[in-house]
């Protein structure tokens, strides 16, 4: 890690949604930082709070959401910022790429118009320069015949093309930070690889930092520098990508890694993939102690795990884990 100031700092971020049964803790005390030019992966299963975290950063949550903590971008507090000022940062300094570009693009406007809008919202630019810029962006993300393609509507694009168009839109103003929420989830594997390759190219060119949100550990392994693992709205582990994969310090991460199909290992016993038993807990009624304990193969029932909420603490240089027994060596081998 470099000695630069972090680009984005998130401190003790919590997001609650009021429900009839009480507050739903979608995100619970999450802290992390993103350095310039870095790629941070956020991993977790559905409902673990990955997307809500990223939406909270840009102030895109519905008004009924109660957000607390601090989000600072280049030292500026984003949570307390007025909508008018946030609009100047959204899309210009911090841009988002959404999952499922078919619904994330407006069906009533051409792709070119929607990319052009991203430019004109933040810049005064002439018509010809704008058209050139749109073509340039489409070319950058690898869309052939950009002039023709710009005139087409989202439904005339293939899935991979739409995701690229979405990326083109997000990089229109060379943002410092790109938040990609499940950018490859709706795509098949070859297209996934192409889209990830586009991210790599963009990062080389624009030197932006990227937060990539995914449930796919394979994606994270390929592109991220550091990885944060989330479970039930809480962060459970944060480490460099190598440490996370080879020096796992949380049983949930270990479980996720063990669930990956691997070609180099014959599945023993019943020819089945490893799975984490049980269901993710309710975000309204959390289990006592560590919220992962009901599913954890290492849990000491009646001990710390069921009684005390584990703190996120540094267990090795730059490696954070929220497990009481993180010092005991966990590894893929042991769990599977």
């Amino acid at each position: 890690m470099t000695g630069l100031d972090p680009l984005l700092v998130v401190e003790h971020l919590s997001v609650e949604f009021p429900t009839d049964d009480g507050a739903l803790h979608a995100v619970d005390d999450v802290s992390f930082a993103v350095m310039p030019h870095e790629t941070l992966g956020i991993v977790g299963e559905s409902g673990s709070g990955k997307t809500v975290t990223s939406m909270a950063v840009l102030g895109l949550l519905p008004t009924r959401a109660r957000v607390s903590g601090a989000v600072r971008f280049r030292g500026q507090d984003l949570l307390g910022m007025r909508e008018k000022d946030l609009e100047k940062i959204r899309g210009a300094k911090i841009a988002m790429v959404f999952q499922d570009a078919l619904t994330a693009l407006n069906p009533a406007y051409t792709v070119g118009d929607q990319i052009a809008e991203a430019v004109t919202v933040h810049n005064q630019i002439g018509r010809d320069a704008l058209a050139t810029r749109v073509r340039e962006l489409l070319t950058l993300v690898g869309i052939p015949n950009p002039s023709e393609r710009a005139e087409q509507f989202p439904h005339e694009y293939s899935g991979g093309m739409r995701q690229r168009a979405m990326i083109a839109m997000s990089i229109a103003n060379d943002p410092d930070l790109l938040i990609a929420d499940e950018p490859t989830t709706a795509l098949d594997v070859t297209i996934q690889a192409q889209v990830l390759e586009v991210f790599g190219r963009i990062q080389e060119r624009t030197e932006s930092a990227i937060i990539i949100i995914t449930h796919d550990l394979g994606v994270v392994a390929g592109v991220a520098d550091r990885v944060m693992v989330m479970y039930s709205g809480q962060q459970v582990e944060l480490a460099s990508v190598d440490d996370l994969f080879y020096n796992t310090r949380h049983p949930y991460t270990a479980g996720l890694l063990a669930s990956l199909p691997r070609l180099d290992r014959r599945a023993d016993k019943a020819d089945r993939l490893h799975r984490i038993t049980g269901q993710p807990p309710s975000l309204v009624f959390r289990p006592s102690g560590c919220s992962f304990h009901p599913r954890c193969p290492e849990a000491r029932i009646g001990g710390l795990c069921t009684e005390v909420v584990p703190e996120l603490r540094e267990v090795a240089q730059g490696h954070l884990s929220a497990c009481h027994f993180a010092q005991d060596i966990f590894g893929v081998e042991r769990v599977s």
């Binding site: 100047k88 940062i89 959404f98 619904t103 407006n106």
Partner: peptide
């Protein structure tokens, strides 16, 4: 509630324009 409204907001499009251009149009 649709995703493209969220996209428009994430682009930094001002609220009024989001409602009329992206919302009302559809």
């Amino acid at each position: 509630q649709s995703d493209y409204i969220r996209t428009a907001r994430a682009k930094g499009v001002p609220r009024r324009q989001v409602i009329v251009k992206h919302g009302l149009r559809n």
